[in-house]
Design a protein around this nucleic acid. Structure first.
Lengths: 155, 155
DNA sequence: TTGATTCCCATAAAATCCCATGTTATACCA
DNA sequence: TGGTATAACATGGGATTTTATGGGAATCAA
């Protein structure tokens, strides 16, 4: 199908009165190669929205078909929840999507959204929550890899 | 792509008023074989910018979703930070990239940048900081290997 | 009809392209 | 070998395009 693609970077965009948000241009460029819509669902682990290409879910479905034995029952159940929760979000000619109330509520997003690249997928956060989350992850990394020092120039 | 490639040498270039820097020609030659952009992120260990080919991150992403761990929150936390912090930096027809404020701040770079080859990746430093860092590394090496003596001809 | 979604146009700021120039490195030739 | 012509590179500045974002009109659903 295609070459490599990666959702990268952290981008802050506004959510306007109608509930529209610009999908970051870089993300759009990736999506456009195969479609004009992304798939979003509520993250199971965090108060944020997750987004990916439909092909990702398709791959998941394939894996479930062919590897039934290797998947735990709970994994299966989670997958099914995922399909039920996911929805396509097409973007208009100016590159905006309109997130559902359900998603916005789950992530606590009102007027500003932060897009965070996660490689094959991405997340959408409330700015304050993301700040805390990033802090948490950094702390976890430092704890597990004491050799890494915090830079003086940051913050 | 070539089987082997190495970012080598240390090159000093100017950062202009718009925040543009020429990617050293040697580096560009390497990148051009597969792409017209590099990926940069804030070094975890030092006050500098790190750059590499997108293929590097792509490999990481492959590893991450090959453990069928679509839902896990225990995915390597460094990767998690890495994708969110990384960004593509395409270079224009004259070979320049435009580094983000975030990166420049992290590295304390204003009007001059030093590119330092690190093999599969490279770093970008503030000149003064790099000087100190190089000094530090040299000292550390000498300390660990007392048999190596500083040459009188150096400096 | 009413509320919501989609489409279209407008705009300011930022990113990118393109041309020009000085400088350095490389090739070439007598 | 020395010296010059040529090409490659780094850099500056202006023009052009892309992006994010706001708002109105058109379309749709209940």
């Amino acid at each position: 199908m295609r070459k490599t693609f990666l959702f990268l970077d952290t981008i802050v965009n506004k959510v306007d009165a109608k509930g529209r948000v610009s999908l970051p241009a870089d993300y759009r460029a990736i999506v456009k190669e195969t479609a004009s819509e992304i798939v979003c669902y509520r993250s199971f682990n965090s108060p944020c929205i997750e987004g990916c290409l439909e092909t990702m879910l398709d791959k998941l479905a394939d894996e479930m078909d062919s590897n039934l034995d290797f998947f735990s029952e709970t994994q299966d159940e989670i997958s099914n929840l995922l399909f039920g929760d996911s929805k396509r979000y097409p973007f208009d000619s100016t590159g905006r999507i309109m997130l559902s109330e359900k998603l916005l509520k789950h992530a606590g997003i009102t007027d500003t959204a932060v897009f965070v690249g996660k490689g094959r997928k991405f997340q959408i956060w409330n700015p304050q929550n993301w700040e805390k989350e990033e802090e948490r992850i950094r702390a976890a990394v430092l704890k597990n890899r004491p050799s890494i020092k915090k830079s003086e120039n940051d913050r």
